[in-house]
Design a binder for these strands. Structure first.
Lengths: 234, 234
DNA sequence: GAGCATTTGTCCGTATGTATT
DNA sequence: CAATACATACGGACAAATGCT
């Protein structure tokens, strides 16, 4: 076992006994403790970072990372908000944009829209322990919601809002994959364009086979959320 | 735009015009061409590697990578073999182990087995263009197959074999996630334990709600296969 | 099989850059 | 502004794997 791996193993057992958000000793402190060069110490921390065990922030330090398991199934997914809470984390959601605009062609097709008809597009960010975790773009068919910009600022689940308008939102279609987020998304997620990111797309209809209500495309950082897809009966 | 990004962009457009398996110029040749240090050239190639565009082999060189899109849905997945062929790649499958042994507790539960009853465990490797891509462990319930070790050496799909025994294999339950492969799996996949890897688990039953036939757990390298999970109707 | 050149992988020590506190 | 902490870069050296002779 190489010296880098030894340092990594030692740090890993140390992490196991600490809570998400805790700060690790600085790289210089670790150099002294292990009598190693900075290169080795950094390599060791990079191993932990690759496994999403720690998070590093320039100027601030290295911290124990929190990663959430998020279960997706055809029956629907619990809100990320609640999932985070249950894991002991602090979820926060922000609406950062709400505009009327024409949807891109592929999305308009999902929503059964005529070309040129404008729909409401929301952009929302979700944080876990004040760390950016996901960004969702949501296209809402015309006439489905009013004053969303007002009513949504503090609401974490669009499904709940839709239910409030006497609709019965059901997940009609979903696709999950990992991909490289486009530049604007990567910027919002404060991540590099070279890191694979979850992309979860969902078409919501009103009741089974009813009118298309909404198409959403969520990007989720792999280091903050672990998406698990499950279907069928045991 | 930094010098590293410029080199990466230049190489990327070069890659776009070449075929999977093609070799890139060596790092030294690129140093001369771009008048850059090895650090910068390597960083640039690492950017391409992170996006799965190239593959590097010590002592051999850097090559244009082939990555397969693999669609998984509740209705079932086409065989990886056929998916690779359709993309223009060369698929190959090897049975590397076939033993009678007791299944681990969690898997025995899936197969409705009593503790201690032995089942057949197969381990199979799949290659794309002679590059290791996936490793599957398959536990087959007692009495379902005979002489599998003989009959399976050249067969790429277990479902076809099961159909040959007058069964009706259906995908009853599945779970997909990315995870870090255990050490033995990482070794078989010739990958590091720090790279997230697809894990696809499936329970196969005989007809709808029938007897449990098989539980399989496949690990798929993210750089060779892009798993896309899709369910529902548009 | 042995030997050799090529190619990528890893590491070192040092210096400088940049974000945070 | 100063101190601290992580990020990036350089040039060089050696290791390890590959492929050819």
């Amino acid at each position: 076992m190489g010296p880098v791996q030894q340092i990594a193993d030692s740090l890993e057992s140390e992490i196991a006994g600490s809570a998400p958000g805790d700060r690790l000793p600085s790289e210089h402190a670790l150099m002294r403790r292990f009598g190693a060069t900075r290169t080795r110490v950094r390599r060791a921390i990079e191993l932990l970072e690759a496994r999403f065990l720690v998070r590093r922030a320039q100027g601030a330090g290295t911290f124990v990372n929190r990663r959430i398991d998020y279960l997706v199934s055809p029956e629907g997914a619990p809100s990320l908000h609640r999932t985070v809470e249950r894991a002991g984390g602090v979820p926060r959601t922000f609406l950062i944009d709400a505009v009327e605009r024409e949807a891109p062609a592929d999305i308009a097709e999902f929503l059964d829209l005529d070309a040129g008809s404008p729909c409401t597009r929301l952009v929302r960010l979700a944080y876990i322990d004040d760390q950016i975790a996901t960004c969702a773009e949501e296209w809402i068919a015309p006439g489905v919601l009013d004053n969303v910009d007002v009513s949504l600022r503090a609401i974490e689940s669009l499904a709940e809002v839709l239910r409030g308008t006497r609709r019965d939102p059901v997940r009609a279609w979903s696709r999950v994959a990992t991909d490289f987020a486009p530049a604007d998304m990567a910027a919002r997620l404060e991540t590099r364009e070279t890191t694979p990111t979850w992309c979860l797309e969902t078409l919501t209809r009103d009741g089974a086979g009813g009118a298309a209500l909404m198409f959403s495309r969520s990007w989720l950082r792999q280091d903050r959320v672990r998406v698990v897809i499950q279907f069928g009966e045991r």
